[in-house]
Design a binder for these strands. Structure first.
Length: 276
DNA sequence: CCGGTCACCTGAGTGC
DNA sequence: TGCACTCAGGTGACCG
């Protein structure tokens, strides 16, 4: 989480950078490490699903974690940074693709970028290019802070199924497939409903659930930043899923069968009885 | 401009 | 038990 990262590294300077899988570095390939070393962190912020390291030099590092990326904190291991992570005895976190050593002059703190599936990307920008890039993403308002009215107005501008609209980051930033399904289930709305047909009362109910579920997920998972030595498998948020990944199983509300369909190319699970 | 499909990547899950 | 196979996720590229 960006606020955890901010607490950990704001005011600190990058002393060392390691990369074990270069395709994650989407920009400035050759000078990536050289440019980062010596950078002092002003803050770490979040924009939708992007994490942004703001440096005092006005350059910045953007990270998109996709599904399996995470930042992990811990001590900087003394053994050599491995190029492959088949060695379970390594002191480096599993699947660490990049590592950053921070220092405030007294203490050192390491942040590891870990990503099992290697889909995540790290992009380095100078002062002049970051705003243009962010603008090109056309991110909508953040799901956690958007108002009911703004949400409703944006939703009803689309004739697509509500499920598909929720995943459109230019409409609403920060919601992924899992939480879209969970939010629709909690709000009792079918993912197939045309977005433009939602009444204000319905979109309001949906937004309440979106925010509640996102906050809950952040709190329960909470461990995107954690001491990797205490990381034990996936966060507990998975156990709270009501419908995601449970196609064919029983609805937790009515015990009817949950149905899996494809909407906008994405897997969707819902209860035809509870969601309409 | 729009919607649809694929690639990217690996581990978990399934079926035999 | 073990192997082959499918599937999942977010996004950008590509195509009709």
């Amino acid at each position: 989480m960006a606020s955890d990262l901010n607490r950990l590294v704001a005011g600190k300077t990058i002393e060392d950078v390691k990369v074990s899988f270069w395709p994650i570095v989407a920009t400035d390939h050759d000078s990536f490490i050289k440019h980062l070393i010596g950078q002092k962190v002003r803050s770490v912020t979040r924009l939708g699903k992007w994490v942004k390291f703001n440096f005092r030099s006005e350059s910045s590092l953007l990270a998109h974690l996709k599904m399996t990326g995470q930042f992990i904190s811990g001590p900087w291991p003394s053994d050599e940074f491995p190029n492959k992570f088949s060695d379970a005895s390594s002191a480096w976190p599993p699947h660490a693709r990049a590592a950053f050593l921070f220092s405030d002059g007294k203490r050192k703190e390491a942040i590891f970028y870990s990503d099992v599936r290697k889909f995540g990307r790290l992009r380095l920008f100078d002062k002049s290019s970051v705003d243009g890039f962010l603008k090109s993403l056309k991110l909508g308002p953040d799901a956690l802070t958007i108002s009911r009215q703004d949400f409703h107005n944006r939703i009803v501008g689309s004739k697509k199924p509500i499920k598909q609209v929720l995943l459109d980051q230019t409409v609403l930033a920060g919601l992924g497939n899992i939480y879209a399904d969970e939010s629709l289930f909690a709000a009792g709305l079918s993912p197939h409903r045309k977005a433009r047909e939602l009444a204000e009362q319905e979109s309001g109910r949906l937004l309440v659930e979106i925010k509640r579920i996102l906050i809950e997920a952040i709190e329960n998972r909470g461990s995107t930043v954690d001491n990797y030595q205490s990381l034990e498998g996936p966060g507990s948020y998975q156990s709270s899923h009501q419908v995601y990944g449970k196609g064919g199983r029983l609805c937790p509300k009515c015990s009817g069968a949950l149905v899996r369909t494809i909407i906008g190319g994405r897997s969707s699970v819902h209860c035809p009885n509870c969601q309409s």
